[in-house]
Computed example of a mutant assay.
Amino acid sequence: MAGPNIKHAAYHGPSIMKEIFFGISLSLMAGYLWKRHHWNIQRRTREFYGLLDRGEISVVVEDD
Rank of each mutant, 00 (worst) to 15 (best):
L52V: 01
I41L: 04
A30I: 15
T45L: 14
V59C: 00
I41A: 06
M1N: 10
S58V: 12
R44N: 08
E47Q: 07
F22W: 12
R54K: 08
Y32S: 08
K7A: 05
R43H: 06
K18R: 07
G23M: 02
A10W: 08
D63E: 04
I41Y: 00
H12M: 12
D63M: 09
M17R: 09
N5Y: 15
L33R: 07
M1C: 05
L33P: 02
D64V: 08
H8C: 14
F22T: 09
K7Y: 15
L33I: 07
H12F: 15
L28R: 09
Q42A: 10
H38I: 07
A9E: 04
S15W: 09
F48R: 04
R54C: 04
A2E: 01
I57H: 01
H37K: 10
H37T: 10
I24G: 11
L26Q: 15
M17C: 15
M1G: 11
R36D: 07
V61K: 04
E47Y: 06
P14N: 09
R44W: 04
P14G: 06
G50F: 03
I41T: 03
R44G: 00
E19N: 08
P14A: 11
F48W: 09
V60N: 01
M17T: 08
S15A: 11
V61S: 15
Y11V: 05
D64S: 12
R36M: 12
F21T: 13
D53G: 02
E47I: 03
S58T: 05
Y49N: 05
G31Q: 08
A10Y: 13
V61H: 07
A10K: 12
H8L: 06
S58N: 12
W39A: 00
